[in-house]
């Protein structure tokens, strides 16, 4: 009774009460808590992003519009750097090289990862060990991988040529032609990343409802049919994710081709495996031309956006083609 009385009496007492301003302050605080604190809580990330992400992006754009020499003049030249690059044969070659290695590395890599994941998705003895095993290449350093593979692909003293020699194949000069060098570099990329993608696919596969397969089995679908018509369409979001990640990784390829040529940025005697990323670093490091490097970096960014979108459109058709 007493409680009810108090509850009832309180609203009446309120208008005259001196508590009111404090209450308003409280209400203000709770409003702040409700509306502002989420922003406050996520702000550390965005403040860091502003400093280390957005600012460098914007500054790079600013630099790219200048004739910006380290230890030299910094002069506004508008889009001249972009014009130079878009009409420059060497830069065009690095774009072709990059896309070439990207296709050569990524397509087999993702297909292989899909197959491996499908195989690992079966029940067999020791599957945990095998599943962990495909991830092992991930824990090695990129540069270590590249150094070892560079030795394996030696022309005169390399293991691959020695092996091929046993079958009477003439030694291949792995650094001489575009195709040979692309194959060699792609194999490094694939060795390292196939397992990673396979594990992602495997995780997604285990989330596919069993009933779909059971129903398909009852309908008499072969396991190959099940793979292409149930597994792959169900994996679509994950495949899109891996394609995006591989696109970004593939188009910014740097360490493997650089180490393949003993740490040099020129990508072979005619630049036959120089990637855009190597071109950028060469421009500012060896030639001190920051403006050109910045412009090339923005063109690379544009290239990644275009190719990622194109990939998205292609991959997005998976379900429709079913």
């Amino acid at each position: 009774m007493k409680t009810a009385e108090r509850v009832a009496s309180e609203p009446q007492a309120q208008p005259a009460s001196p508590v009111r301003p404090r209450n308003r302050f409280r209400r203000f605080l709770s409003l702040v808590d409700l509306k502002a604190s989420p922003y406050l809580l996520v702000s550390p990330y965005f403040i860091l992003f502003l400093i280390f992400g957005a600012f460098p992006l914007g500054f790079t754009l600013w630099v790219s519009l200048h004739d910006w020499q380290l230890a030299g003049d910094k002069e506004w030249i508008g889009l001249d750097n972009y014009q130079f690059l878009l009409t420059n044969e060497r830069f065009r070659m690095t774009v072709v090289n990059t896309i070439g290695m990207f296709v050569l590395a990524t397509v087999p890599q993702l297909l292989l990862a899909l197959m491996v994941a499908n195989a690992l998705n079966k029940r067999f003895r020791g599957r945990l060990l095998i599943r962990l095993g495909v991830l092992i290449p991930m824990v090695t350093s990129v540069v270590a991988v590249a150094i070892v593979f560079s030795q394996i692909y030696g022309t005169k003293y390399g293991m691959v040529n020695w092996f091929l020699g046993n079958f009477g194949v003439d030694p291949i000069d792995w650094r001489k032609t575009s195709l040979a060098s692309w194959v060699a570099i792609s194999s490094m990329v694939d060795w390292r990343w196939t397992g990673y993608n396979a594990i992602i696919y495997l995780a997604a596969m285990q989330a596919i409802p069993r009933v779909l397969y059971e129903a398909a089995t009852v309908d008499g679908a072969s396991s190959r049919r099940q793979f292409w018509h149930i597994t792959v369409p169900q994996l679509k979001p994950v495949i899109i994710f891996t394609v995006f990640i591989s696109t970004i990784g593939g188009l910014t390829l740097f360490a493997e081709p650089m180490m393949f040529n003993s740490g040099r940025l020129d990508g072979g005697t005619t630049g036959q495996f120089q990637t855009v990323a190597m071109y950028i670093v060469q421009a500012f490091r060896e030639r001190n031309n920051y403006g050109l490097a910045a412009a090339a970096a923005w063109l690379l960014f544009a290239l990644i956006v275009v190719i990622a979108l194109a990939n998205y459109l292609v991959v997005n058709r998976i379900r429709e083609s079913r």
């Binding site: 150094i147 560079s150 022309t155 005169k156 003293y157 000069d173 040529n261 003993s262 740490g263």
Partner: peptide, 18 residues
Amino acid sequence: GKFQNWTDEWNVAMEAGG
């Protein structure tokens, strides 16, 4: 020879008499 300075092949060749 095709042994570019500072490459692995160059190192091996130096030792192996390339």
